[in-house]
Amino acid sequence: MLNLINLHNLKGAYQLKNQGGDFTYFYNEKSNNLIVINNIDDEEIRDVVDDTDQAAYMYLTNKLNIETNLTVIWYKTEFDSSDFILIENVDGKELHKLDLIDLENVVLGEYKFDKKFVKLIDGEVIELKF
Score class of each variant (00 low, 15 high):
D91Y: 02
Y59V: 03
N38H: 05
S82N: 02
D51L: 10
D47Y: 13
D91M: 02
D51C: 06
T52Y: 04
N32Q: 05
R46S: 14
N89R: 06
N69T: 03
M58P: 07
I35Y: 02
Y57P: 07
T61M: 12
D42Q: 13
W74K: 05
Y59C: 04
E67L: 15
H96Q: 09
L34T: 03
D41H: 14
V72P: 03
D51A: 11
N69A: 03
D99P: 00
T52E: 03
R46F: 12
A55D: 13
L60Y: 07
V49I: 12
D42E: 13
H96E: 09
I87Y: 01
D83E: 14
T71N: 06
D51S: 12
N62Y: 09
F79R: 11
K76I: 08
V72Q: 05
L34G: 03
N65M: 06
L60W: 07
N65D: 03
D83A: 13
D99A: 00
T52D: 03
D50W: 11
N89E: 08
I87M: 06
Q54F: 11
Q54W: 10
E94M: 08
I35L: 11
I66D: 12
I73H: 08
G92V: 05
D50N: 15
T71W: 00
L86Q: 06
K76L: 12
K93N: 13
K63Y: 09
I73D: 08
D99F: 02
K93V: 06
G92L: 03
L70Q: 10
F84G: 07
I40R: 15
V49Y: 09
S82M: 02
K93P: 00
E94H: 11
K63W: 08
D91K: 04
H96A: 02
K63D: 13
F84P: 02
Q54N: 13
W74F: 08
E88C: 09
I45H: 01
N69W: 08
Q54S: 13
E67V: 07
I40D: 12
D51H: 09
D83V: 07
R46L: 14
A56G: 03
I87N: 04
R46N: 13
T61D: 07
E43L: 14
V49E: 06
N39V: 02
L95F: 02
T77R: 15
N62K: 12
T68Y: 04
T52I: 10
I45Q: 05
H96N: 09
I45S: 06
L95R: 03
N33W: 08
D53Y: 07
I40F: 13
I73S: 10
D42Y: 13
L86E: 09
D99R: 07
T71V: 05
H96P: 00
T52L: 12
Y59E: 07
I66Q: 15
D99G: 01
L60R: 04
Y75T: 06
I35A: 02
M58C: 12
N32K: 08
N32A: 06
L64P: 04
I37W: 00
S82D: 01
V48T: 15
L98T: 00
T77D: 15
D91I: 00
L86W: 04
N38G: 10
D47G: 08
D47A: 13
D99C: 00
D51T: 09
E88H: 09
Y59L: 12
A55K: 15
N62S: 15
D42P: 04
W74G: 01
T77V: 15
Y59H: 12
K97G: 03
T68P: 10
T68K: 15
N89I: 00
K93L: 09
L64C: 04
Y75C: 05
T71M: 10
L70N: 11
